[in-house]
Every structure is written in C-alpha cells, then in structure tokens.
Amino acid sequence: MGSVRTNRYSIVSSEEDGMKLATMAVANGFGNGKSKVHTRQQCRSRFVKKDGHCNVQFINVGEKGQRYLADIFTTCVDIRWRWMLVIFCLAFVLSWLFFGCVFWLIALLHGDLDTDYKDDDDKSKVSKACVSEVNSFTAAFLFSIETQTTIGYGFRCVTDECPIAVFMVVFQSIVGCIIDAFIIGAVMAKMAKPKKRNETLVFSHNAVIAMRDGKLCLMWRVGNLRKSHLVEAHVRAQLLKSRITSEGEYIPLDQIDINVGFDSGIDRIFLVSPITIVHEIDEDSPLYDLSKQDIDNADFEIVVILEGMVEATAMTTQCRSSYLANEILWGHRYEPVLFEEKHYYKVDYSRFHKTYEVPNTPLCSARDLAEKKYILSNANSFCYENEVALTSKEEEEDSENGVPESTSTDSPPGIDLHNQASVPLEPRPLRRESEIGSRR
C-alpha cells in the first residue's frame, strides 16, 4: 500500500517518465508532432483561472445545437444578457408577425380586404367582416399587437362572423401568456443567479507553507467582502497533476483530494472575517514527500473551492481559484488583518494578500521532518523571529508614515537576534492585533 500511495502522490514527473511517455506515443502511432509532453521546463496551462473560470474549450460535440435547444431554459439562463435581450425582442416580434399574417390571411380569404370602410357607412358590411377595420397587412399586424398586449384601442375587434378568427384570438392570448411567463422566468432566474456573489468572495493571491502546531501546513486565505453571511460555508481543495499509471496509461489531469478537515468538520467555516484555511501535510497528503526545492521545480495546480448558500436567496454559490506551484510561498505567513478595537473588531483588507517571511522554516519535506531528519529550532526562537518579522513590518510602515526611528523597538546594537533566540524570552503579545485562523 505504501508503494502504491507514493506512486499515486508523486508530484514532480521525472525525466524517465517523460521519455517513457514519448516512447509510448511513438510506439502507439501518436508521434505526429502534435502531442505535447509536459516536462519541468514546460509548465501546463492553468486549468482553473484565478477568477474561477475553467480554462476549457469543448470541440467536436455531436448534436450540440439539439442538446442546447432541448434544455432551452438553461440555455437562456446561461447566455449573455445581450443575447437574452435579442431573444426577448424576437420572441414578441415574431409572435406578433405570425398572428398578424394569420389574421391577414383570414381577412384575405373572407374577402374583407376588398371592402373600403372609410367611404361605406353600411354597418351590415362591417358585421360581415371577420375582424372589423382590418383591410391590410398593417392593420392585421396592429390588431395582433393589440390582442397579445391587451391594449385594446377599440377600432379593431373580432366579430362572430368567422369562428376561426375567434379561435385565433383565444389562441394568441394563451401563447402570449406562455411567452411572458417564459421570458420573465428566465430573466428573473438569470438575475437571481448567485454567480455575481463570487465577486465579493476573495482568495489570497498566494498560498503559503509554514509551520503550525509543530507541523508543516499548506495555507491559503479566504474572505467575504459583504456583511451578509454565506450560510453553510465549506471549503474543498484538489491537486491536479499528470501521472502515468503502473500499466503505462497517461492521465493528463489526475485529481487528488486535499484534506482540509472534512473528517473532523473544520472544513465548515464561519466566514465573517478572513480565515486562513489549513491543510496539514501528513502522510496522507500529496505534498508529504515534497521539499522546498521540489515545490520550486514541480508542475501541478491546486484548485480551491468555497461553497455556501447566499443568505438573501438561499441559492448555492461556488467560488473557485487555483494556485500553481510557483504561487506557493515556502516559509511565509499571512499578515494579520483582524484588529481588536474598543467595542468592535476591524478588518483591514489592505493586508489581505500580504505575507511575511518566517525565518528558520524547515526546507525539507514533511516526511523528513516526521522522521527527525531535520532538527527544528527552539520553539522560543521560532516565536521570537516570528515577532521580529512582524515588528520589522510595523517599523517599515512607521518610517513610511514619517514616525521617528527613535520610537521604534530596535534591538541594541551589536546583538545578533538569531543568537539571542536560544535565550528564554518573556511572551510578547501583539500590541493591538490578533489573527483569527482556522485551528486544527
């Protein structure tokens, strides 16, 4: 089982795998120059863009038009607004034209077009017409509009002379109601789609790998820009990579689940303020055997998904993003964004995407760390350097704002901070800030 798991979770494809794949392509008759073999020097295209759209195009789909027309309502909801407006206008105009032609044909076959009612006051002739005051196609078209929109100006009306005319008036009224219901329903469904809710759900630009509770963890940050909550919010993550099976089958995008606390339930989050999602790199993680150097040379993509129900409509929305291997910062942490004021908490989104480097973060893999092949620094050293990194950030910001350097908390000259780390230190809580992250 261990060997199978290692093969499945191998992220960085070796040169031997690339040569094996190329040999397979030639042997199977696919070596026509169009096949692409992804190596370390040639990274694959992003499968999920940063804005959440999937970078996929469908080609050679059989009976595409028929399949889309069979699900016309979903098609109308998914198309762009400009095409929705075109369909909206065409549906009414074509129905008016169709029934206008029908009423014109009825008048033509009944002989109503030969009668001039402007110079004739004989009401008996008017009563013999199928539709009064309809003696041309324009008049028939206007009567069709008046019937379907129930305008009723009063000059044109159907008589009991022709039952077919009466039937067409009733039929057009029913068709008009159906068109109204369909168009209004599609427009309302399109307006109520929770897709735009994703514009106020954000992911951090970069993911980070750092120590948390004595273990290497992959972390990324999510935030909600609205005050309205995302009900039943939960997160998922998958690692996408290519691999070759033991039988020699090439899988271009193998999807591997990344555990973010599904078993323990901590994948469900209360997204009021930005939260750091934590994936513990343990023996079940696809990143277990990867060191910093392996991450730098790897070719994979981590897709992160945030799902929840919109509070206003109770409709489920899904926000997506992805991180390539070069977008994962090893040995970094996110800057705090949640600050405790006197009577409330304040979230500073200008710090949302910012990170700071944490010294002495192990550069080895989580496996080597678990097997004690890498000796961690003293816990006080880690905490102290973590505090120094934050303090230096604040000093830089104070210097930019014009604060005198004498007010900063610099260490005395001639003292090495790293050498001082081995000395037991008193706890130094942050002056006014605390970061709330997901705790395992």
Rank of each mutant, 00 (worst) to 15 (best):
E385Y: 03
A27S: 10
P412Y: 07
K215V: 14
S399K: 12
V202P: 04
R431Q: 04
Q238W: 10
V187A: 07
L225A: 12
S322F: 00
A421L: 13
V131D: 02
R46P: 03
Y345E: 03
P413W: 07
A366W: 01
T409L: 06
E133V: 02
I178E: 02
V134Q: 01
A312F: 04
S321T: 11
R432L: 11
S173I: 15
V358M: 12
S291E: 03
Y323T: 06
A379H: 10
F171V: 09
V134G: 01
L287D: 00
N55W: 00
Q148S: 07
V235N: 00
V4S: 14
R156Q: 03
I295V: 07
Q420G: 13
D296A: 06
N28Y: 05
L142D: 02
L90V: 04
K50G: 06
V48F: 10
E249L: 10
P412L: 09
G261P: 02
L108Q: 13
S291Y: 00
H53M: 08
L253N: 12
K195R: 11
F155N: 13
V358F: 03
G65S: 10
N7W: 07
E146M: 04
E371T: 07
N419L: 12
F58D: 15
R367S: 03
Y384G: 04
F182K: 10
D51Q: 08
S10W: 02
D119L: 00
V61E: 14
K292E: 05
G265S: 11
A314Y: 08
T391L: 07
K20G: 07
Y345V: 13
V423N: 12
P336M: 07
Y374M: 11
R432V: 15
R46M: 02
C43S: 06
D71L: 05
M84I: 07
G308D: 04
L376W: 08
M211G: 04
K196W: 08
L425N: 12
H418I: 13
P274K: 00
R428V: 15
E327C: 00
I415V: 14
M84V: 07
P404Y: 11
V86E: 03
S45L: 06
E400V: 08
S350Q: 12
D296E: 05
C177E: 08
A325F: 01
E385C: 03
S10P: 12
E357C: 06
P252C: 14
V278W: 05
F141G: 03
A312R: 12
I164K: 00
T313Y: 06
W83K: 11
F137S: 02
Q293G: 13
E341V: 06
V278S: 07
E396A: 10
G414A: 12
P286Y: 02
A298H: 07
V48H: 03
M315H: 05
D119P: 00
I178M: 15
Y323F: 10
G265R: 09
V187Q: 05
D263R: 09
D254R: 14
E146W: 02
V310H: 11
F171Q: 02
E396M: 07
A192C: 04
V126R: 02
I266K: 12
D257R: 05
C101E: 03
D112M: 03
L287G: 01
R333V: 14
A370P: 03
F143I: 03
A298Q: 11
P427Q: 04
E15S: 06
Y153M: 05
L369Q: 02
P286Q: 00
K346V: 03
C383F: 07
L216R: 00
T409P: 10
G52N: 00
C217V: 12
N386E: 15
T75D: 07
I375L: 14
C177Y: 15
K354A: 09
K190S: 14
F167S: 11
F141C: 04
E283F: 03
I266H: 10
I11C: 14
H53P: 11
V337Y: 07
L425W: 05
Y68I: 14
E15N: 08
D116M: 14
D71N: 15
K128W: 03
I302M: 04
L216G: 00
N206V: 07
D299L: 07
A389K: 13
L253H: 06
T138V: 04
H343K: 11
C130I: 03
I256D: 05
Y349F: 09
E146H: 03
S124Y: 14
S45H: 14
I375P: 11
L369M: 08
C157N: 10
P194E: 06
S411M: 11
P424G: 12
R67T: 04
E232N: 13
I79C: 10
L376G: 09
E396I: 08
N380C: 10
V170G: 03
Y384R: 06
Y384E: 15
R333T: 15
S45Y: 09
G152W: 02
A22K: 13
F182C: 05
A379K: 04
D257L: 04
S365L: 00
S45I: 03
I174Y: 06
L430K: 08
A181F: 15
P413L: 10
M19F: 03
L417G: 14
I59K: 15
R40L: 07
V77D: 11
R367G: 00
N297W: 04
I415L: 13
K346R: 08
N386D: 13
L113C: 03
I415H: 10
K373N: 10
Y356Q: 15
Q420R: 07
L225M: 05
R432K: 06
E394H: 10
I328N: 01
D254E: 12
A325M: 03
I266D: 14
N135E: 11
V278N: 03
D294A: 11
E327A: 00
Y345F: 12
C177K: 14
L376F: 06
V310K: 05
V260R: 00
S264Q: 08
D112P: 01
W104H: 08
